[in-house]
């Protein structure tokens, strides 16, 4: 079984947010080097990204998301509120 690789977001040494330094085209093996900031959504952890995708797929309906995931409405709404707060903090960094 191939382990699922997680995109590292923070530097293992100083814990600062990492930026993209190198990208690869898997078709022709071209390497692009430079310094690119991670987009805002990529700065969220795996669980948070899954939440955003589910939110989009359910057309922004927290009620529908809650029923799909077997959670209560306030639980989902609190997760969304916490995520909004995190995104705001990331934007202000």
């Amino acid at each position: 079984m191939i382990p699922i690789k997680k995109l590292p977001l923070n530097c293992p040494s100083c814990d600062s947010l990492l930026s993209v330094n190198r990208m690869l085209c898997k078709t022709c093996d071209t390497n692009v080097e430079g310094s690119y900031e991670l987009p805002l959504l990529a700065q969220l952890n795996g669980e948070e990204q899954k939440f955003v995708i589910s939110f989009l797929k359910s057309s922004g309906s927290i009620k529908e998301m809650a029923s799909q995931m077997g959670m209560s409405y306030p639980t989902m709404r609190n997760m969304l509120d916490d995520l909004i707060e995190k995104v705001k903090n990331l934007e202000n960094k």
Binding site: G70, M71, S72, Y73, P74, T75
Partner: peptide
Amino acid sequence: PFIQIAGAKSA
């Protein structure tokens, strides 16, 4: 239990 049940259902 409120992680799964809240609102009208829990009422």
